[in-house]
């Protein structure tokens, strides 16, 4: 039997040489049914063209490095199987809505700033001394925020978000989901400190509830839900007497 092969097109862009991104086509062996899109890129880099640039590390869907657009859909390339595309071809482009640094590498500094802006750490009026042991927390209390704590910062949701595509001032799905993660944590008392950022005009209110963020999330996080819950929360806070606004 002839060796199975698959055609992979990948974005090439070097700002020093290219005025705009172009696609380069590679024909590579599809030698094992377990191969993923990332394996195809690694084959190209090892055997065909050492200059192809992209990020990856864990190849088990947890480090969040290898998000790219595969045939139009934001995906973790380590978990996208070639067999799901073959005998068709594969087109790999960088994640949408981000500036391209080089080839398939995007600039995510904007997210890093946004992440910091929502104060993603436990805020308490008074820190408990270490000697006092742990805060008690039940599994039910963890269930309140569990899904929002599963975000791997892979940026697929930003790539899928039409609002972020139009206006990168929008705080965006992952950052809001992570703010929600801390606000819902029984150990945290920082909701009020996070409010100015998430209730700001560039915060939750920008979202037009398309819900694509939740569809593309590879980890089952539902940022759309986080955004809607936060909208409700901030409205209720506004109605409640001042003293009740925690």
């Amino acid at each position: 039997m002839a060796e199975k092969r698959i055609t992979v097109r990948a974005t090439r862009f070097d700002p020093a040489k290219d005025s705009e991104p172009r696609l380069q086509s590679y024909d590579i062996p599809f030698s094992d049914d377990s191969m993923v899109v990332l394996d195809a890129l690694n084959y190209i880099k090892s055997h065909v063209d050492g200059s192809l640039s992209y990020r990856w590390s864990c190849r088990m869907g947890i480090c969040g490095s290898c998000g790219m657009t595969v045939n139009g859909t934001p995906k973790l390339t380590c978990s996208a199987f070639l067999r799901d595309y073959w005998p068709g071809s594969i087109t790999i482009t960088p994640l949408n809505n981000f500036p391209i640094v080089r080839d398939l590498v995007v600039d995510m500094e904007d997210f890093m700033e946004k992440l910091k802006s929502i104060k993603p750490w436990i805020i308490r009026k008074q820190e408990m001394p270490l000697g006092a042991g742990e805060h008690r927390q039940t599994m039910e209390q963890i269930d309140d925020f569990r899904q929002f704590s599963q975000c791997i910062n892979c940026m697929l949701c930003y790539a899928a978000c039409p609002v972020y595509g139009l206006d990168d001032k929008f705080l965006g799905p992952a950052a809001i989901a992570l703010a929600r993660r801390y606000n819902l944590d029984s150990r945290d008392q920082g909701t009020k400190e996070r409010l100015p950022v998430i209730a700001h005009s560039d915060g939750v209110w920008e979202c037009s509830f398309v819900g694509e963020c939740s569809v593309v999330c590879p980890k089952g996080v539902d940022p759309a839900k986080a955004i809607q819950q936060t909208k409700l929360d901030t409205s209720v806070r506004f109605i409640l007497p001042y003293g009740n606004r925690e």
């Binding site: 436990i122 270490l130 742990e134 008690r136 927390q137 963890i142 801390y182 944590d185």
Partner: peptide, 22 residues
Amino acid sequence: PIEVIQMEHWGCPWSRDPDGKI
């Protein structure tokens, strides 16, 4: 143990027993 408690104070979502302990 001190470090595990420190991580708890920083927000690590350790799995818990029914009494709320790690």
